[in-house]
């Protein structure tokens, strides 16, 4: 099908986009890479009256090396982030996640911020935001504030972003040095959204005890979820496969998926547990090699 008609505005800056949004807030959508929005519009699942295009705004210093992490402007394409030397050096787990997004043709246009604001619960970048304690810089015509990723995702495709607000940049925090990480997904085809995804980070102290751990699942609930009950069992412990298997049983506390055309809820729960064990085992291996 073809999209319904709309009014089109090409924003020249984020400030300009905020002004346009404040004038059209109730009817307008921001268009960035459009790799989800235009597909939804082609199906007429989305029929915005007004599109404000931020895909061509002048965007110097898209990626900045900051003390506690890497800041990526929201309009940075996924491909630019994926190949950026600073991202590859400091956030290799983010590169791994980016490579899982669809195909390279999609990543050439899809943006880091667009994927986050779209908030598909099975997508990678919202999950990586929880894994890396990300902070979102948000702007409207009259206001600018920072929100933790943890507070951002409300339910399916729904975020705390107000109708007159734009996501400007994302600060992905660098986890402790010498940490290990892993990301595992089950999808029906290469490039598809994950039916279930799991990511983990583990950092060890000199005695081999776990001092920092993050476990995040995606595709298993209405938002990406941090499995804090799993993490709690691991902090301060010397990790082992047996401990991981015991801890991973606790993913059932956050798995809240309904059966769909692809798989049953029971399948999702089982796979979430298995992938969590795999992520933890691989993250531990990487952490032991690194330290």
């Amino acid at each position: 099908m073809k999209p319904a008609n709309f009014e089109y505005f090409r924003a020249t800056s984020i400030d300009h986009a905020c002004e346009l949004l404040s004038a059209h807030a109730d009817d307008a959508k921001i268009l960035a890479g459009g790799q989800s929005l235009i597909a939804a519009m082609n199906y007429r699942l989305a029929r915005p009256q007004v599109l404000i295009d931020i895909s061509n705004i002048d965007n110097p210093s898209q990626i900045t090396d900051e003390t506690d992490g890497v800041r990526i402007k929201a309009t940075t394409t996924q491909a630019i982030a994926e190949h950026d030397p600073v991202v590859r050096e400091r956030l290799p787990m983010l590169v791994d996640a980016l490579e899982h997004i669809a195909h390279f043709q999609i990543r050439n246009k899809g943006t880091v911020g667009g994927s986050i604001v779209n908030a598909d619960p099975a997508s990678e970048l919202p999950a990586m935001s929880l894994l890396l304690d990300a902070e979102y810089e948000i702007q409207s015509k009259s206001n600018r504030h920072v929100m933790a990723a943890e507070d951002f995702f409300i339910t399916y495709m729904t975020t705390a972003l107000q109708s007159d607000e734009v996501l400007v940049s994302i600060l992905f925090k660098e986890p402790p040095k010498n940490c290990g990480w892993a990301l595992h997904e089950v999808a029906r085809r290469a490039g598809d959204y994950a039916l279930v995804g799991s990511a983990a980070i583990i950092a060890l102290d000199d005695g081999g005890k776990c001092v920092h751990v993050r476990v995040v699942l995606f595709g298993v609930a209405s938002t990406p979820v941090r499995a804090k009950a799993v993490e709690e069992l691991l902090v301060g412990q010397v990790c082992s496969d047996e401990l991981f298997e015991e801890a991973a049983k606790r993913v059932s506390e956050v798995v809240d998926a309904e059966s769909d055309v692809h798989v049953t809820d029971e399948y999702r729960g089982n796979v979430a547990e298995v992938l969590t064990v795999r992520s933890l085992v691989d993250a531990l291996n990487r952490a032991q090699t690194a330290s």
Partner: peptide, 10 residues
């Protein structure tokens, strides 16, 4: 890029 996921104006 996908030309079907790009508006010509972009």
């Amino acid at each position: 890029v996908r030309s079907c996921l790009t508006f010509a104006l972009q």
